[in-house]
Nucleic acid binder design. Structure first.
Lengths: 140, 140
DNA sequence: AGAAATTTGTCCGTATGTATC
DNA sequence: AGATACATACGGACAAATTTC
């Protein structure tokens, strides 16, 4: 088949399918996606089309690709797209920046940072802990 | 010529060159870039490589492309809008659990955890740092 | 340590579809 | 309707990073 792309282009259909697999957990958080070669075989499209689909996911931060290693699903989205029986506890607190964070943010050690911590539990077990650090805004 | 790309890939060299023309005003803000066909002739590369270069500029908000019309340089980025778009860097690594995390997950101190770190930058500054911890799965 | 295999990255040429002028 | 311009898709070749043996 040469190149018909009525309606939705193939790479987008494939990107949506992979996205569903990530959100549904069919592809575990942090796990590697199938290789481009495997996806080429599964969807029966050329490698370029697969690469386009993955590029689309990369643009929205869903996956990360490393040369020679592969593409893995990013974990932080699971916490915001929970379909199953997972529960989430979120709280905010303030902490002084340690050396590592101070260097990252370019502030002095001890500067107050706001931390939002999200704990995801599934069947009584902690599945993930997500911490987001920000500089406290001066607004109020 | 097969495909030598020592050092910097061609599409990136071309992207940088186009970027310079936009920044220097050689291509006026809001003006249309040369067509893909024209750029193909000028840089003596295939159309696919030109499209890759333009895609790189599009990702950082430098240009906008319209189907059938062309690609034009975005004017607003000169002021502040370029910093309006956030960029994310995500990487994954393994760390031993410290006491706090070990207690949370209910594992021994030193147990290997997988941490995904995502850094969001806006206008050259780090806006937030998100770390997601989870227990390493038995995948390998 | 080093060679081979695996996997992603770059680039080419070609063909066809779709939107705009 | 015709010409122009970007979009999608294929297949092939070789480069580069990583992992495996």
């Amino acid at each position: 088949m040469p190149t018909p792309h009525y309606g939705q282009p193939r790479y987008r259909t494939i990107a949506d399918e992979l996205r569903k697999r990530i959100e549904s957990g069919a592809i575990s958080p942090g796990a590697l996606l199938p290789t481009e070669s495997a996806l080429t075989a599964e969807f029966r499209v050329s490698r370029g089309t697969i690469r386009q689909a993955i590029a689309a996911l990369r643009e929205i931060g869903f996956v990360t690709t490393e040369h020679g290693r592969g593409t893995h699903a990013n974990a932080r989205f699971y916490d915001h797209n929970m379909s199953d029986s997972a529960t989430q506890q979120t709280r905010q607190r303030e902490v002084p920046a340690n050396e590592e964070l101070a260097v990252l943010f370019g502030v002095d050690i001890g500067t107050t940072l706001v931390v939002e911590e999200s704990i995801t539990r599934r069947s009584q077990r902690i599945e993930s802990v997500t911490r987001t650090y920000r500089i406290r805004t001066a607004s109020h």
